[in-house]
Design a protein around this nucleic acid. Structure first.
Lengths: 203, 203
DNA sequence: TGAATAAGATGACCATCATCATCTTAATTT
DNA sequence: AAATTAAGATGATGATGGTCATCTTATTCA
C-alpha cells in the first residue's frame, strides 16, 4: 500500500539508521539488504524505492555515522579547555564502553578496511567524514592552524588504530594497546605532562 | 591422483601463501576458498585435505602474514640506532609503496576490521601477532622495558591507524593524514626533535 | 608386489544475496 | 471523485560460495 511522503521519509531515515548500525557491526559484506530492511521493520522489496543499490545505501549510512560521531564529539568537547581536549578525546574514544559499542561508535574504527575495498564514491564520502572529524577536533585545540590540524590527525589516527587493533585482538593484547595509548596522551599531544588529569571519559 | 608427502607440503604452503595475500587484498568475506585454490594453481576440491574450514585457513594465513611482516621489520631495523628506530619504522610503514601494497603489507592494516568480526581463535592468533610485532619493535628502542613497549604499541597504533584511514580515503585526505603522522614522528616518539632525519624508507 | 590409503579433480548441494517483476492499495493529482 | 501513481509486500532469478561425495590414480605400507 502506498505511503505518504512523510511516511516514506520516515522509512528512509529508518533504513539509513539501521544500515549505519548494521554496517558498523557486521561490515559491508556481512550486512545484507534484507538484514537492514528487517532491522528497519520493513520487507526487502521496498528498498529500491529509496536507493539505487546497496552501495548507495552505504554512502548514506557513512554520512549518517560520521554526523553522529562528530555531533557527539562536539558535545563532549564543548566546554573543555584546549589543553585537555586531546587527552579527553583519546580517553573517551578508547574507553571500555566505546570500544565495546561497535555499532554505535566511530565509523573509522568500524569500517576502514571495508571502505578500503569499496569504490571511489564510498571512499570520497569516507574521506569527507575523516576531514570533518579532524577539523572538528582541531578546532578545540590551541596553536597555529596547520599545527592543530596535524596534531588532531595524528592523535585521531593513533586512537582509531588502537581501537581497531584492540577489537581484533584477545583481551590481554587489547588491554596492552589501549593502555599504552591512554596513558601517554598528554605527552603525545604536546600538552604539559604536569597538567591535571581532568575527566576520564569525555566522549 | 595421490601426491607425495612433499608434494602435499608444497601445496599446503602454496595455499597459505595465496590466502595470506588474498585475504589482505580482498578481505575475509571477499575471498572465496575457490579463489585461494585457484591462486595456488589447484582446484577447490583438494582444499579440505589441508584445512577443516575457511576459518582454519584464515588462522594459518594470519600467522604467515605476521611472520613476513616481523621478518621484514627485523631486517629493516637490524642496523638502525635506537634513536632512529621509531622514526624509521613510521616513515617506512607509511611510505607510498607500502601503503599501496595491501596484499603484501601489514596484516593489521589490512584486516583489523575483518578479524574484529571473526571468532576467538582468529582473534587469538591476531593478538599473538600484534604482541610479537610490538615486542619486535620495542626491542629496537632504548629505555626501560615497560616504557619501550608502551611507546612501540602507541606508535604502531598510530601508524597502522593512519594507513587504514589513508587507504579508505580519497587521495587528498590520505595525504593529509599520512603527512601528519610522518612529519611528527620524532616528537611523538619522544626523540629529540633536533635528531638528524636519517633514512626515509627503512621498511 | 599387492592392498590400503589418500591428494586432488569434478561435480553437486544448499544457503545466502543483490536485484527485479509484479501486485496491492493508499496517496496524489486532475 | 476518478484516474494516476508509487510505497511497500511477495515472490522470483541468477550468481556466488562453503562444504561434501565421489572418482581416479599415485603413493605408501605390509
Amino acid at each position: 500500500m502506498r505511503q505518504s511522503r512523510e511516511a516514506k521519509a520516515e522509512t528512509h531515515q529508518a533504513i539509513v539508521a539501521a544500515a549505519a548500525r548494521r554496517f558498523r557491526e557486521r561490515g559491508i559484506e556481512g550486512t545484507s539488504v534484507g538484514d537492514v530492511m528487517q532491522a528497519a521493520n520493513r520487507t526487502h522489496g521496498g528498498f529500491y524505492r529509496h536507493f539505487d543499490s546497496k552501495e548507495d545505501l552505504l554512502v548514506a549510512a557513512l554520512g549518517r555515522a560520521f554526523e553522529e560521531m562528530i555531533a557527539g564529539l562536539e558535545h563532549a568537547l564543548a566546554h573543555v579547555p584546549a589543553e585537555r581536549a586531546l587527552g579527553g578525546f583519546v580517553r573517551g574514544y578508547t574507553s571500555v564502553g566505546r570500544v565495546a559499542d561497535v555499532g554505535g561508535g566511530c565509523p573509522v574504527a568500524a569500517l576502514s578496511n571495508d571502505v578500503q575495498r569499496s569504490n571511489e564514491a564510498v571512499q570520497a564520502e569516507f574521506g569527507r567524514g575523516v576531514r570533518a572529524l579532524i577539523a572538528s577536533l582541531a578546532a578545540h585545540l590551541e596553536g597555529p592552524q596547520a599545527k592543530r590540524e596535524a596534531r588532531a590527525a595524528r592523535t585521531f589516527a593513533m586512537a582509531a588504530g588502537a581501537v581497531m587493533i584492540a577489537r581484533a585482538s584477545d583481551q590481554a593484547t587489547a588491554d596492552l594497546v589501549l593502555a599504552a595509548v591512554r596513558d601517554e596522551v598528554p605527552r603525545h599531544a604536546s600538552t604539559p605532562a604536569s597538567a591535571p588529569a581532568g575527566p576520564r571519559e569525555l566522549l
